[in-house]
Design a protein around this nucleic acid. Sequence first.
RNA 1: UGGGGUGUAGCCAAGUGGUAAGGCAGCGGCCUUUGGAGCCGCCAUGCGGAGGUUCGAAUCCUCCCACCCCAGCCA
Length: 570
Amino acid sequence: MPVNESSAPSHFIRNIIKEDLRTGKFGGRVHTRFPPEPNGYLHIGHAKSICLNFGLAEEFGGKCNLRFDDTNPVKEEEEYTRSIMEDVRWLGFDWEDRLYFASDYFEQLYRWAIELIKKGKAYVCDLSAEQIREYRGTLTEPGKESPYRNRSVEENLDLFERMKAGEFPDGSRTLRAKIDMASPNLNLRDPVMYRILHATHHRTGDKWCIYPMYDWAHGQSDSIEGITHSICTLEFEDHRPLYDWFLDELEVYHPQQIEFARLNLTYTVMSKRMLLELVQEGHVESWDDPRMPTISGLRRRGYTPESIRDFAERIGVAKKESMIDLALLEHCLRDDLNKRAHRVMAVLHPLKVVIENYPEGEVEELDAVNNPEDPSMGTRKIPFSRVLYIEQDDFREDPPRKYFRLSPGKEVRLRYAYIIKCVDVVKDEQGKIVEVRCTYDPETKSGTGKTQRRVKGTLHWVSARHAFEAEVRLYDRLFSVPDPAGDKEGKGFKEFLNPESLVTINSAKLEPGLKYAKPDEYYQFERIGYFCVDGKDSKDGAPVFNRTVPLRDTWAKIEKTAAGKQPRGV
RNA sequence: UGGGGUGUAGCCAAGUGGUAAGGCAGCGGCCUUUGGAGCCGCCAUGCGGAGGUUCGAAUCCUCCCACCCCAGCCA
């Protein structure tokens, strides 16, 4: 066991495990499981659970299983199990040889059901779905017992056998646990254990036409696998008495269910239903659209597994329902990317700059550092010439106070190159600035140490002749309000979609080396943000760049507050 | 007016009777050839509320309030 466990912040589940280890409750074992239903793609909320389950096992020298909770054939697909395995692996976790499916236990579950019938603890019920609902009672009134509740063991055995044999149509009968129709906990009012579903299961095919319900399958699956701590979300708290009831009646190994609050993130929705809607109605391109909070979406957006794991650690684990600020996720991302991203220069909104006193036709190869945070990443050469592009935002004809960038008569440094001075501005007929004329000071070349002159601003740039043009996609939050799912007077979450969540730049000017950028590489476009190569739409020699997250922009903040205080603009 | 949960800063979150950790956000400042990064500092006389016990209460007791979950043959 790692000795550094104290370095991890404590949370209640970790405390429970430490206590169980101390008292020897499970013989010193820690065995968890991540149990997704293969009916959709994994999202950042699942990542919290994955990190918790696999992380705890790792921390205490235990094991964590990957188990698909595939008890409902009508909703589940092979495609989802594929993507789920890919996502868990990408996050950096390994279930080794412990890949399981609840459907692997159908036979055992069936035998256990017969056992309960024989004990008089389960019965076949002929009530329809609607009748079951009526008989269940309400939150404040007890339910009524089903007229089929007291069938003989023999009749139950016979009927159940015939249910399995396919003699009855869907919905005609169920197998129910005989518990207490007057229980204040509705889950204990004779819950359904099996329903008839003549559907083809993605793994068991047509072998079964009765399928176990979640409550009947989950605890027993945990038991079979020898799980010690069965961690799930808060809404299952009311199910725990049932979880315990089945295990106790069966007199089998009994894991401990522990519930924690699921993740909610500002400016996003997390329900599978809503995410599915976004995909099906075309509000996003697909499940892995870079604006989606899915693991595959985050991956395509340029998130690193490390940043997500760091995030999962920092948000903590508790029973309080919370809404985490997206800014924290972005902080974790930038924190990681800052250390690993390869710095490059890219001009998104080009403005031509001509250096009047720089010789026509001359080209210099300048040295640029690949990552100031990590010298081992080395340096590269970038071409400099007479005509360049700078960012339109980096020039203002009439600069506001504290504007450190270029403006008429002012000096600025070109990163890794020279200090230049703006001497003229060229406009078109509409008065739009189309070109800036400058002069450069040859004595100020970067790295020569010939001058001690300092200027306030440093701009990124790209040599016009050498620029490589590529498509750049600027992604932003998908929703424009912090809690799109928390309906403001009945408005649906889709009314809050951010119309500017994707802005495409067709031909940004990039430094030439970027032509060979590949997916899985992390870049920082200096002074702009972190970018990655889109894994789907890029081609060899024609990469498409996705903005992962912008750099923090102090100047934008200053301008914004200034605009707020003095609403006279410009 | 059933049952199960949860309330500590703008957002998370430690703390479990000895006088409110930490992170994010925010705000100052330093530094800087990225207005990035980094560094320094500030940010709860207060822990949902009211009583009570105690030398001492976020922690114990009583009552109250607010919010979330449960009436699928979904998970």
